[in-house]
Design a protein around this nucleic acid. Structure first.
Lengths: 209, 209
DNA sequence: TTAAAAATGGGACCAAGGTCCAATTACGGG
DNA sequence: CCCGTAATTGGACCTTGGTCCCATTTTTAA
């Protein structure tokens, strides 16, 4: 599970200036990345592309939509990409806003190639890590949603470490019934051991919910 | 446990310009914070003050040591404070570096009062959250350190959800012995249930270590 | 070298969780 | 009114973990 041929990381390059766009793309390809170029950010916001990039390298100031707007739009859409901004003449407030919104880096032109590559490397690492844990959480959430109300109540008790007996009292049902629910919870959550169930619950939000 | 009289949050204000220093401090006090003023960052770096602040509001450019240096020094010393930077004439690279290093905000003068207060509020929230989880982790780590090597090995197996029987085989010892170690682990980790033990292990690094 | 700590194990026994059989009740749609 | 799903419960039985009392060997630190 989760093993593939470790394909080259995908990077989207977005800049309204064709020369920079191509230049950056060329550099990235030479460094072993799969680079896609966009002269406008609009296509990025339309629908879900199947291949979400591992990183986006984007100019801040673009005619139709500036980089920050693209960033916030993607965030709002739940598509959280690792973004490295590039900018010609920039101001501090803009860079701060970008960083607060989760940008990986904010490079002021001119910057040397190694600086860009380092930022991209960081972005890819972060992006992959986030996407991985996010996928795990989504998976757990989906399983959790498949539980019936009663099963969720029982699971809460189990994860809290309470004995079947006590859970039964708290829910006003027989201990036997708790056992049945408990077993079904294990099945539906696709875990073999209690330890795994606790981990699952922990990486979602059952504890607080 | 963990209930106190929710004292006023403590804020350290650091600026070599006395007028700004006092002005900011006055504003913070008027907003209900406990503000301490520092004309030099040096005292902040000496030894561990008992009362770590909930937030530090600091100028970037100061004669002896600039704000970023103070930030990195504190980080290196393990004293991770929530820092809000202020700056007169600033450049983008500096702000980006500060944000990447974990600053909560980076305000360019002049800024209005509400902006500063909002940043401080955010910083305090973040600082408290971080310090809380950090304290929990440290506590768990300490307990973990009190385990013997064998106990740690057994704990690893238990947390991984393996049966005593199997743990015994893997360690080449009798199941009875595993039980003994397991019991001692529960005592030393100060948990009552397996669920709690798994949580403890999870919030430290036993899983990977 | 000697005392303390750690690791090892045996036997007995109980309680809790897991499993396999089966069945009844309640509810919302067709 | 019938059907499927969810919720409920019983009984028998086994496995596993937890607990008590006990003892030996090895390691470690004073």
């Amino acid at each position: 599970m989760m093993s593939n041929t470790q394909a080259a990381p995908t990077v989207f390059v977005v800049d309204d200036d064709p020369s920079i766009l191509q230049g950056v793309a060329r550099l990235l390809r030479a460094s072993g990345y799969e680079a896609f170029t966009f002269e406008s950010p609009i296509p990025l916001l339309e629908k879900e592309q199947s291949p979400a990039p591992d990183c986006i390298v984007m100019d801040v100031s673009m005619p139709e939509l500036n980089g920050l707007q693209v960033q916030s739009a993607m965030t709002k859409a739940g598509r959280n990409a690792s973004i490295v901004f590039m900018t010609g003449q920039s101001d501090v407030p803009t860079s701060v806003r970008a960083m607060k919104a989760g940008a990986v880096d904010f490079l002021t032109k001119p910057f040397d190639e190694e600086t860009l590559l380092a930022a991209v490397r960081t972005a890819i690492e972060r992006g992959r890590a986030i996407r991985t844990s996010q996928a795990a959480r989504a998976s757990t959430q989906a399983k959790l949603a498949a539980l019936t109300k009663r099963e969720r109540e029982v699971m809460r008790g189990v994860v809290a470490g309470r004995l079947n007996k006590r859970i039964a009292v708290e829910l006003g049902i027989a201990e036997k019934t708790v056992k049945v629910h408990r077993q079904r919870v294990m099945e539906k959550m696709q875990v073999e051991t209690l330890a795994d169930l606790v981990r699952s619950a922990y990486e979602s939000d059952l504890t607080s919910a």
